[in-house]
Design a protein around this nucleic acid. Sequence first.
DNA 1: CTGAAAGCGCTAACAC
DNA 2: GTGTTAGCGCTTTCAG
Lengths: 335, 335
Amino acid sequence: MVTLKQLAEQLNVSVSTVSKALHNSEEISKDTILRVQELAKHLNYQPNKMALSLKSNRTNTLGVIIPNVLNHFFAKALYAIEMEASKQGYNIITCVSNELLVKEESSLQLLSNGSVDGFIMSIAEETQIKNKTEHISKLLDKGIPMVLFDRVADHLECDKVIIDDFGAAYEATKHLLQEGRQHIVLISDIEELSVGKLRINGYLKALEEEVNYKNEPIVIHIGKEADVEKIVDNLFLSNKKVDGILSIDNISGVIALHKALNKGYKVPEELSIIGFSDDNVLVFTDPKLSTISQHTFDIGKTSVQLMIDRLERKAKTDPVTKTIRTKLVLRGTTK
Amino acid sequence: MVTLKQLAEQLNVSVSTVSKALHNSEEISKDTILRVQELAKHLNYQPNKMALSLKSNRTNTLGVIIPNVLNHFFAKALYAIEMEASKQGYNIITCVSNELLVKEESSLQLLSNGSVDGFIMSIAEETQIKNKTEHISKLLDKGIPMVLFDRVADHLECDKVIIDDFGAAYEATKHLLQEGRQHIVLISDIEELSVGKLRINGYLKALEEEVNYKNEPIVIHIGKEADVEKIVDNLFLSNKKVDGILSIDNISGVIALHKALNKGYKVPEELSIIGFSDDNVLVFTDPKLSTISQHTFDIGKTSVQLMIDRLERKAKTDPVTKTIRTKLVLRGTTK
DNA sequence: CTGAAAGCGCTAACAC
DNA sequence: GTGTTAGCGCTTTCAG
C-alpha cells in the first residue's frame, strides 16, 4: 500500500501538505493540490483504513450476527443488510452463531475490540431458550449500539426490528376459519423462540374467538432432532380430518404440502395450507404454497437504517422498535 | 474501551510495563504481572484491534466476495468459510457482488485499503461473461493473496478451489446411459459460467462416447429473465420422449421433477432426473432428487485453509489448485 | 525490573 | 502556503 509519506517524499513536500491537498484544503495552493492529487491517482493511493479508524475511533463497519445462513430468512436478511450497508458506505463483518450461545458470546466479545461501530443481530435459539442475555446487556451498558431483528428479547433496551408475529398468525388462522375449516393444526419447529410463541398465541386466539369452532387447537412441535417427515406423516394418520394447516416456520409448510399430496389429499379443496416465509422461497411446489410473507428485505434494510441513524446522530435517543408489516399471500394452497 | 494508558495510570506504572506484563514478559516481576493482569481482567481490557493492525500490518480479517447469498451453494460456502475462519482466529468481511462486475470491482477496491489480509471469492456472472478480470489481476500484481473458488478464471495466477465439473457431469450422464436412457436432456441456467460450460462438455462427451446412443444431445438454456417453469413445461411438450434429465444448476432439477410428476411421468420408471447441488438442498421432494453432490462445506473450508496457509507462510509459493471430489448420490429419481 | 522514545499512517492544531 | 508537532493505542528497542 502507498502511504502519505511516500507521496510526500516523491513530491518533496511534507506529509501534512499532502494530507491537506488530498482533502482540497483552502490552505494549499491550486498547483500543489493538482500535483498531489495527480500522483495519488497515478499510484492509486488509498488512505489506510486502520490508521483512519484509529484516529477517528470509527470503523464504518457493522458486526452482523445471525443464527444460521442456511435458513433462507437469515440469508435474505443478510443480503438486505449487506446491500443497504454498502450503499451507505459501511462494510459488514459477518458471524454465524449457529444457534449457539457460546458462539454468540464469543463473536460479540471478539468484535467489541474496536472492530465495529455497532451490532445488528438476531438472537440464537439456545440463547432464547436459556434466556441468557447478560453478554448483550453488557455491551449495551458500555454504550455500543445494537439493533436486534426478528428474534429479540423484550427486556433489552436497544433498537429492534420485528414483525407482528401474533397478528400475522392470527390473520392467517382467521382466513382458514373463514374458509370453514374445522380441524386446523399448527406445526412448528420454532416453538422455543420468541417469535414462535407469539405466532402460536395468534393461532390460539383466533380459534378461541371463533364461537363456531368446535375442536381443540392442535399444536404439533417438531423437535430439532426429530424426523420431520415422520411427524408430518403421523399427523395425517392420527388426525385424518385435518383440513387446515398453519406452518409457522420456514419449511414445514412445504413438507406438509408434499406429504398431503402424496397421501391423496386434494389441496386446497379438502385441505388448506399456509406457510410462513419470505415471498420467494420454494415457489416451485404445485400448487404453490400460500404464505404469510415477512418482507425480509425490509427487515434487513430497516435494521441498517436504524443503526446508521443512531451512529450518525450525536444525541442519545430512546430505543426504537419498528414493526414491519406482513402480508398474507394467498396462492394455490388456500381457497 | 479501556486502554493500556488507563491501566498504566491506575497502577502507577508505564504503558510499556503494562504491555509487557500482559504478554508475560520475562523482564517484568511476577508481582507486577499479577497486578496488571488482574486489573486488566477486572476492567475487561481488550487490545484495540485497529492499533494492533496498524502496528503489525495484519488484520486477521478475510474479505469474502460471493455473487449471491440467496443461492444455497454460496450460502453454504459462506457458512463453511465463516466456520473455518473463525476457528482459525480470523474474521470475515462479507460482500455480495450480486453477480455484477461493478459491485465486484468496488468491493475489491474498497477492501484493499488495508481492511483485509486477503480475499476469498467466487467470480460474478457478469464478470465471467464479459471476461474482465483486470480488477483481480491488479490486486494479484500488488501481491494481495486471493483464493478463487467454484467460479474461477484459468489465466489468473492464484490459489483456486474447484470441483471436477466436467467429470461430475460426465459421470452423471454415464449413469443415465447405463440405465438405458435414449433421450437425455441437459437443462441449465448457468451456461454462461465457466462451471456451466465444463458441465455441458462433460455431458456431451459422455453421449458422444456411447455408440448406442442414437439421438442428438439437447441442451436447454434458461435465460436469466426467463420463465423457468414455462421452459420446463415446453420441454415436456416438445420432447415427449425425454427419459433422462440432467440439471446442472441448483434448482432446475427440482422444477423439472415437479413438472414431470404433474404431467404424469412416472419417476424414475419412465424418466430419471439428476440435479446438481449440495447434499441437503430441497430434500423434501417425493421421490427425492438424485444429485451430484458438491461437498460445498469442503470447498469453503479448503478455501480458508489455502488462504491462511499462504498468509502464515513467509515464503512465496506457486499457486495451488485444489479439486474437491464430487459424489453422485442416487436417491429416488434414478433407477 | 521499569521507563522513555520511536513509529505504524493519518489528521489537525499550531507555528512560521 | 507550507511545515512541525502531537496524538490515536499499541509494540519494541534501548536506556537506566
